[in-house]
């Protein structure tokens, strides 16, 4: 993995995530998040996960974010400017939680010896991925398919027409 490309991509991911969580227009936030997912997909590709990179683009940036855009436009909240929460009300707990996470991460970071990641790229090919998925973890695939089925039934029930006032 090229170190410079990694730094550039992580800077892009952090910047676009920062922009996404601070936007007042929902459409802008969603589009910035798509940018963040694209840079994360490139990082996945460089870290030897080509199939996961493709799935990141297809599922997250493609399906989930389009679903978000669809709902935002359906509820006609695209142009509305959502006021940001005043600082003193809720920022305290958020800052405390984030500081705890960063502090524990810093302990891990400076307390362990710096090992370089293995230089191989594309070390899990889609063939190896699929073989491991459908031989060793086929039961987990069944469980995940059940989860998706339950999500489908739940979304259908919530969206039923006579359910609404």
């Amino acid at each position: 993995m090229n170190a410079l490309a990694f730094y550039l991509l992580s800077a892009a991911a952090i910047f676009s995530t920062l922009m996404a969580i601070s936007r007042r227009e929902l459409i802008h936030a969603v589009v910035y998040l798509v940018l963040s997912f694209f840079s994360l997909a490139l990082i996945f590709f460089m870290m030897g996960a080509p199939l996961i990179a493709a799935l990141e683009v297809l599922i997250y940036a493609g399906a989930i974010m389009v679903l978000f855009l669809f709902i935002v436009m359906m509820l006609e909240m695209g142009a509305a400017k959502i006021p940001l929460t005043p600082f003193r009300k809720v920022w305290g707990p958020a800052v405390v939680i984030a500081a705890v996470i960063f502090f524990s991460m810093a302990i891990l970071f400076f307390g362990t010896p710096q090992t370089a990641v293995s230089p191989m790229t594309a070390f899990v090919s889609p063939r190896r991925f699929g073989q491991a998925l459908y031989t060793k973890y086929y039961l987990a695939v069944e469980a995940v398919s059940l989860l998706l089925l339950f999500a489908l039934v739940g979304a259908l029930y919530l969206g039923k027409r006579d359910n609404n006032p």
Binding site: M105, Q114, T115, A116, V117
Partner: peptide, 11 residues
């Protein structure tokens, strides 16, 4: 050069 493993964890 590779960035260290912990850099990815920091990201």
């Amino acid at each position: 050069m590779m960035p260290p493993f912990s850099y990815v964890l920091v990201l």
